[in-house]
């Protein structure tokens, strides 16, 4: 982190992350993301903005982040469509309603599926929403947090209604996704220390497709 933040390289780079929102219908996925992107929750606001797909631009410690948030339909009958949405996501936000035990069970199912399909490359956030209804809580905090830890996810408590915990959730997720991306970069040998100078001169794009292209046209 220090290296990336210190150099001009880290500052000049823009990360684009895709985050998918999963969770049963009515757990408040839409409100959560709307709250975050527009900071409007109550009905007084007249908005034509739709919440299925939202974007947000952030600047975290000099790193620019473009966030694309993909909502999914939470109804059980659409469960099968999950993979086409979460494919190539950098992060997933799995939302449950703290007053609804079933919705937490659904989150567990999603976690299993995501880990199976995408491995550890995806940053998982498990979110207990509606903490304003603490009195009606049916999912214990300890259980939820322990579960999250056991699957390598982070747990958050939010209330879309009271705008609690949402900024933190997304900020934290972004930081984790940046870290993951940086690990990826380093693994590829683009150490951030030298990247600053090197990257500027190098035209980055498409080495691999280019290599393919040679083969492609010969065979064609």
């Amino acid at each position: 982190m220090a290296a990336g933040g210190g150099g001009g390289a880290g500052g000049s780079k823009t990360y684009s992350f895709k985050v998918v929102l999963l969770g049963e219908g009515c757990v408040g996925k839409t409100s959560l993301v709307l709250r975050y992107c527009e900071n409007k929750f109550n009905d007084k606001h007249i908005t034509t903005l739709q919440a299925s797909f939202l974007t947000k631009k952030l600047n975290i410690g000099g790193k620019r982040v473009n966030l694309a948030i993909w909502d999914t339909a939470g109804q059980e009958r659409f469960h099968a469509l999950g993979p086409i949405y979460y494919r190539d996501s950098n992060g997933a936000i799995l939302v449950y309603d703290i007053t609804d035990e079933d919705s937490f069970q659904k989150v567990k199912n999603w976690v299993k599926e995501l880990r199976k399909m995408l491995g550890n490359e995806i940053c998982l956030c498990i979110v207990g929403n509606k903490v304003d209804l603490e009195k009606e809580r049916h999912v214990s905090i300890e259980e939820a947090e322990a579960y999250a830890e056991s699957v390598g996810a982070k747990h958050y408590h939010t209330s879309a209604k009271q705008n609690k915990g949402i900024e933190e959730l997304f900020l934290d997720l972004c930081k984790r996704m940046i870290e993951t991306a940086q690990v990826d970069e380093r693994a590829k040998g683009n150490g951030p220390s030298q990247a600053g100078g090197a990257r500027r001169g190098v035209q980055i794009v498409d080495d691999e497709p280019q290599a393919q292209s040679a083969g492609g046209c010969c065979s064609g």
Binding site: L34, D43, T47, L49, Q50, A51, S52, F78
Partner: peptide
Amino acid sequence: GKKEAFGADDFLP
């Protein structure tokens, strides 16, 4: 009847 923002739960069906 109201100007609410719709998410995927509403839109897909």
